[in-house]
Design a binder for these strands. Sequence first.
DNA 1: TAGATTGTTAATCGATTAACAATC
DNA 2: TAGATTGTTAATCGATTAACAATC
Lengths: 229, 229
Amino acid sequence: MPIPDKTLERLSIYRRLLALARLGDDDMVFSHELADMASGNAAQVRRDLMELGVAGHRKLGYRVGHLNTEIGRVLDPPNGTGVVVLGVGNLGRALLQHIGGEHERLHVVGVFDTDPSKIGHIIHGYRCDSINDLEAAVQARGADVAIITTPAEAAQAVCDRLIAAGIRGILNFAPTPLQVPDNVFVEQVDIETALEKIACVARGAPARNGMLLHEGVVYRAQRMQGGAN
Amino acid sequence: MPIPDKTLERLSIYRRLLALARLGDDDMVFSHELADMASGNAAQVRRDLMELGVAGHRKLGYRVGHLNTEIGRVLDPPNGTGVVVLGVGNLGRALLQHIGGEHERLHVVGVFDTDPSKIGHIIHGYRCDSINDLEAAVQARGADVAIITTPAEAAQAVCDRLIAAGIRGILNFAPTPLQVPDNVFVEQVDIETALEKIACVARGAPARNGMLLHEGVVYRAQRMQGGAN
DNA sequence: TAGATTGTTAATCGATTAACAATC
DNA sequence: TAGATTGTTAATCGATTAACAATC
């Protein structure tokens, strides 16, 4: 059985937290320590590491170096993850800066737009190409995933071209659902929806009849932060 | 019982799709039509609308105007959702442009940074204030939710100030888990983790022993896009 | 040994999907 | 009526949490 999506996300986060804590390859970490860092739960950490197939020491916990190796073996393509960015508006540029440059595992291998005033220009160190060059570039430069930051109207057409070019994983910031075949994986980032949901949950969701129920009760549904404080 | 988070997200999406399809208040929509638009499933749409408490017509479907009214009653605070943005780097500016201006339901009511070269300046139409003014501004201008786009190192401190100022809902773009009390709702947007997961799932997750299993099998775990092609 | 931790199974919880009676 | 759709319950599925034997 494949490793569940949610576990993959947490493995990525564990790896980052271990690096952030400056733990070296020979350091050991307990499941409850990792759980605290991630505001999670020790049983879940152990279960995740079981899915990953790493064994700890019954008394000393898990070896950080081994953990990192195995997480990388599962998460990282052989040469790191090649990313193409579609659309170089404000958001595209921000993401370019965000994942460009410093990252050791994420590599921006292409930046595309349809605007002639952008094509050929260097943006945050990357040359913007015409979307007509997409297919050749994806294949030549080894792209694994795409980020769509075009306007909503353009997103589906761009998505279709990405799929034709062989891309099978897409992170979509355009506020529109994408129609894709079953063998393509899309993750939607929907900021407007997220804000509306957050506001609603934060003020205590009204029950369906408009009756506010048990004032003061709270909903915890954070991704990782279990949130003792 | 409160409306589940996932349902709240879909209600927000239904509303947007209805508007996108230019459906008027007196138009009717079937559950299967809404499901198609959202790449979802008709049973789920009916269930969501049941949670919302709206009844359809047994033969004619649901009235769009009524649907919008009720979705708004659940999702929207009385005067729309007031948003404060913390950190005005590239990402903060992109989000300002993204949700600023045109939106009828989301209102940016404050923009904050610690950089003296930004404080007092107008960015995408909004004046950037010192974070020292946060508490007064949140209360005077009616902020419902906050977006954190600061560097990771600054995020927890900013989060603590937001909570002290009365904010109970946070959208966090900083790549670090936030420690919050139980009555604060945080949603994490983790681009690096998302890309790693997407790349992993898209190429077919290797099983735990490194054995690739059933070549060609695919994992669909999109948020809404069920994805018939 | 005593105490603490892992590895794993079972229990719980929540979300999605299927099914179908009611009914327009 | 016949056909299609809603409203809702039951079944399924998956993820999280609890529990505890094994063991260092």
